Amino acid sequence: MPHPARLRLTLAKLAAIFPLELALHAVIVAVHPPYLVAVSLLAITTTALAIWVIEPSTMRLLRTWLHAPGHRVRRRTEAGLEQAPSLWRIRVTVADRAGALEQLTFGLAELGANILGLHVHPVLDGVRDELVVSTPDGVGPDELLEIVRAAGGREVHVWPTTTLALVDGQTTALSLSAQVVADPAELPHAVAELLGAQLVTDPKAFQGKPLPADGTILKIPSPWSGLYVFTRPGEPFTPAESARAHRLAEVAETARTLSRGW
């Protein structure tokens, strides 16, 4: 149960204790025992009855009234969570021309979507935009796909995401670079985390073979095994992401060389 408000709790305790105190004092005054006996009876009887009988009973009796404000706050909180905006990650290719991004953002605005993050990756046939958007409750991936395609987007992918997608990409890359410098063997795990990809456990199957045309396979040189292969099904790697992964491999190679020199 939510903790009751202080004023209501005080009033409830007064309501529980006052009748008891009044009744006991009336009995003591009527009987008129010796002073010490009267004080002892009042202290012991009032304390015992208040703690074990009267106060718990009153708390149960007034439970609805006591906890009402907390219940209202909790209901408002739960309602707010139910109506909280959803977060989505969108990847889309648009034409590399003036106004293309504006048309896309205008389409999203019609759905009430708010763009929280945007990364632009140049590709051969245009620009690959990666967006993190929040949408009102009730807007799903189908509506997002439809509006983005209507705005001229191609190769559209929409995934639900979390606030972790809003972490600054440059900060993440620097943190992973520091991790690789400290331990070059962390390179494959750092690249996988940087790109949100999976490490292929048998890279020999890809040696000497062309990459798939869908761009979902990425190869980078390894300072140890000669090759690391990463996959991200349904989400092609962009040239900018490939460049970041290769640069991270260069950092690992440099760190490995320096550590050997020392």
Rank of each mutant, 00 (worst) to 15 (best):
H3I: 03
E110G: 03
V251S: 10
A113C: 01
L108N: 13
G126V: 05
A100T: 05
I17R: 07
R97W: 05
W65T: 13
A16C: 06
T163K: 03
G169M: 10
L42F: 11
H67C: 05
W88N: 00
L36K: 12
L24G: 10
H246I: 06
R232D: 05
G138A: 07
H32K: 15
T58K: 10
A16E: 08
A98Y: 01
E155C: 09
V191L: 07
P2D: 05
Q207R: 13
E241S: 13
A213F: 12
E102M: 10
I51Q: 05
T135V: 08
M1T: 04
T161M: 02
E110Y: 00
V229Y: 06
P184A: 11
T231A: 11
L62D: 04
I220V: 15
A197N: 03
L87Q: 04
T47I: 09
P56E: 00
Q198T: 14
L20Y: 12
R89K: 09
A178M: 03
T163N: 01
I147Y: 00
L174M: 12
A50K: 12
R60A: 07
I115W: 05
T93S: 15
S134E: 05
L36H: 03
G140Y: 10
P136L: 04
L11I: 13
G80D: 08
P85Y: 03
I44F: 11
T254E: 15
T45W: 00
G169V: 07
L9Q: 04
R256K: 07
